[in-house]
C-alpha cells in the first residue's frame, strides 16, 4: 500500500487566452497511494477540475512531472494517453456524459470497444457485471435519456469501472444529485474502493468529503492543506438514516 499510484511534482497549468495568461495550477506536489479514497475540495476556480483533467490524462500540464502507476505520463503521445485512459483510468463527470440515444449497456460497453481484446459476448458480460455492481442490471436496455440523473450517474460509474481501472476519478459526481442519491452514488465508490481501486473525487460538499479517507484542499492553484479524515463515514450505514423524500412529506 505504500507506493503512490499517482505522483505529481511541480505541476503547472497556464491557459493562454490571447495576451492574458490564467495560472490555473501554480505548482502542485501530491502523492496519492494505491487504495486511497481522496476528496479534493476548494473554492470555485481553485483549479480542481484542471488538476483532475491532468491526472485523468485528458489534458497535459504546462510543466511538471506526473507518474501514473509507474508510467511517466508527460512523455506519452496522444495515442498512448488514450490507451492509458482506456486501461488504467475511469472518469466520472458531473454532467454524466453518456452517449445520447444509446442504451445503458452500449454506454458501458464503450471503453471495451476501444480496448480491442474482448469478443462481443465478453463485452456484454463485463458490461452487465458492471451494471449489476451499480445496481442497474434491470435498466441495461434503457436509453440514456430514459434514465434519472442518479441512474445516469450510476451508468457512468459502471462505464468507468468496466475496464478494471486502477484509479477512478470523479469530478463533482454528486453535483447534480439530491442528498440521498448522492450518498447512494458514494456507496458505490466506497464499495469499489474496498476492492482496491483508488478513488479521487472532487466535491464542494463537506458532508460528502467525510466519506473519504483524506481531504485535499486546493486554493489558488495550489494544495493549501491535507486533512486526514478521522471519523470516516460509511455510506451503507448512513443511508438508512437519510429519510426518503416521501417520508419527509408524510411525517
Amino acid at each position: 500500500m505504500a507506493d503512490p499510484i499517482i505522483s505529481v511534482k511541480h505541476i503547472v497549468k497556464i491557459y493562454k487566452m490571447g495576451d492574458v495568461e490564467v495560472h490555473a495550477l501554480r505548482g502542485i506536489n501530491l502523492d496519492i497511494k494505491q487504495g486511497e479514497f481522496s476528496a479534493i475540495m476548494g473554492a470555485s476556480g481553485s483549479g480542481k477540475s484542471t488538476f483532475m483533467n491532468i491526472i485523468g490524462c485528458l489534458d497535459t500540464p504546462s510543466s511538471g512531472e506526473y507518474l501514473l502507476d509507474g508510467v511517466e505520463v508527460a512523455k506519452l503521445n496522444r495515442d498512448e494517453l488514450a490507451k492509458l485512459r482506456n486501461r488504467k483510468l475511469g472518469f466520472v463527470f458531473q454532467a454524466f456524459n453518456l452517449l445520447p440515444r444509446t442504451t445503458a449497456l452500449e454506454n458501458v460497453e464503450l471503453p471495451l470497444l476501444y480496448s480491442n481484446n474482448h469478443s462481443s459476448s465478453q463485452r456484454r458480460e463485463k458490461a452487465m457485471a458492471a451494471l449489476e455492481a451499480v445496481g442497474l442490471a434491470d435498466r441495461s436496455g434503457h436509453y440514456s435519456n430514459q434514465l434519472s440523473g442518479g441512474q445516469q450517474q450510476r451508468v457512468a460509474i459502471a462505464r468507468s469501472l468496466v475496464n478494471d481501472p486502477v484509479v477512478i476519478l470523479a469530478d463533482e459526481p454528486t453535483g447534480n444529485l439530491d442528498t440521498r442519491t448522492s450518498v447512494e452514488v458514494i456507496e458505490i465508490f466506497q464499495k469499489l474502493n474496498e476492492k482496491g481501486i483508488t478513488v479521487v473525487l472532487v466535491t464542494h460538499e463537506p458532508d460528502i468529503a467525510q466519506f473519504s479517507t483524506r481531504n485535499i484542499v486546493f486554493r489558488d492553484g495550489k494544495v493549501s492543506k491535507i486533512i486526514e479524515v478521522e471519523n470516516r463515514k460509511i455510506a451503507a450505514e448512513e443511508l438508512p438514516k437519510i429519510p426518503l423524500p416521501m417520508d419527509e412529506l408524510e411525517s
Partner: peptide, 14 residues
C-alpha cells in the same frame, strides 16, 4: 461532445 466522450474512455484519434 460524443467525440469527447469516446476519447475520454480511450478512443484514439485513429
Amino acid at each position: 461532445r460524443e467525440i469527447g466522450i469516446r476519447m475520454a474512455v480511450g478512443a484514439r484519434g485513429g
